[in-house]
Design a protein around this nucleic acid. Structure first.
Lengths: 224, 224
DNA sequence: TCTATACGATACTGTGGAGTTCCGGATCTC
DNA sequence: GAGATCCGGAACTCCACAGTATCGTATAGA
């Protein structure tokens, strides 16, 4: 956003006046390189030279576009658009469990893990750059929770689960626990893990059976 | 552990031979100072001078004990013992909900938030120092999950909840979601949030009612 | 074709922090 | 009290990286 504003409004007039305009066609490559390096080394380990080299650009070129390393990173995170989690592309299998399981794809797992790497790399910067915290939250964290919320709301609408359910909180279960597992436990977020979340936490909490239907009815009433 | 071994076995003999031995009485203060600075500035923002100044020690003194900044931090995290989550001190109210709610104390919330600050500060280092990742996980993450698991197992033993429940996964719900909320969403982990986890996720998933008993029975059978 | 400008590459500067060395004074042991 | 050693403090070296300046080249526009 930052550089888009500059590129499209302020600078453009001056650029067309004389000679050729600044070549913005390579900006996406630079931003992508920044994201890659960020994911691999973290914000503090990342150097401008690394990004420039990876993007096959000169360091000066980067500084012609972004005033500092911080601005570059903020822009890179804000412009980061990964695979679609748009409402239009979400699965619709007819049952909530079907939908949730259908969202487990190797591609989306891999993407989520990369997002988490990026988030880990940003961690040290988040407390001192609130704008970055927002950008990271919007690009990395929110989309999955939004998708979950949508699927659950649809399940409520068709009467599969009770409208009393706390879907606000439940929509955060998968992203939270996947983040915890990746960032802190350092274990892989594989299919088994996600299935155990669905069948061991989400569906039971929503009043649906988990994995083993045999456990239905075995639950005792609460000691009141 | 590292410095304890050195202090008690190898170096001790040499130290007693001549003059007085190295004064290890101030090590805890130094480690505590390191933890404080770590929580405030993160690993990369932390300097040895900051730690030395805060501990009212000389920088050279720190290097006499730990060979590098990394070792110091690893030791500080490993030796970090905060308020007790020992099994012996856990609440026992007779019901699982009572126990879980009894664990919500301003003191423990505050402590958990500090732990998360530390974890955030360590994040950038975790991928390059596996030993640190283990130390951090043991000191920061595991204790709360262990406590939750103990409370749930006790609830199983007294027949309050089904033994089929996936308590392994469910024990991680609170720490995971609290971590996500602190580190990524940057919202406070307050009592309301924890209560909504207990009543909106944990208890329903365990087959107990959540907050509002009126919703019992409204749940439809699963679409099979 | 000519000119102006942006480009990539590279050399340079300045700063900040890791790790080292040295010193005067305090403290323990004998 | 004497001797040895460790302490806190401060000055020092060394290096990595942010940010700047320069240069030869490539290319778009006139």
């Amino acid at each position: 956003m930052t550089q888009l504003e500059l590129g499209e409004s302020g600078a453009a007039a001056a650029e067309t006046k004389l000679g050729r305009r600044r070549d913005h066609t390579r900006d996406p490559e630079i931003l992508a390189a920044a994201i890659e390096v960020l994911a691999e080394t973290g914000f503090d380990g990342m150097t401008i030279d690394m990004v420039a080299t990876r993007a096959k650009a000169g360091k000066a070129t980067l500084y012609r576009r972004w005033p500092s390393k911080n601005e570059l990173v903020i822009d890179a995170v804000a412009c980061m658009k990964m695979g679609d989690l748009d409402v239009a592309h979400l699965p619709d299998t007819g049952t909530l469990r079907g939908d949730l399981v259908a969202m487990i794809k190797p591609r989306s797992i891999q993407e989520a893990e990369k997002k988490m790497q990026i988030m880990a790399g940003l961690m040290s910067m988040l407390s001192t750059a609130p704008e970055l915290a927002d950008a990271a939250n919007n690009a990395i964290a929110k989309p999955r929770a939004t998708a979950n919320r949508f699927l659950m709301q649809r399940a409520i609408d068709r009467g599969e689960i009770s409208p009393q359910c706390d879907i606000e909180t439940l929509a955060l279960v998968t992203p939270s626990m996947a983040a915890y597992r990746t960032l802190i436990e350092r274990k892989p977020v594989d299919r088994d893990f996600l299935i155990s979340l669905i069948d061991g936490v989400l569906l039971p909490a929503l009043g649906l059976v988990g994995g083993d239907p045999a456990q239905r009815g075995k639950v005792q009433p609460p000691a009141s």
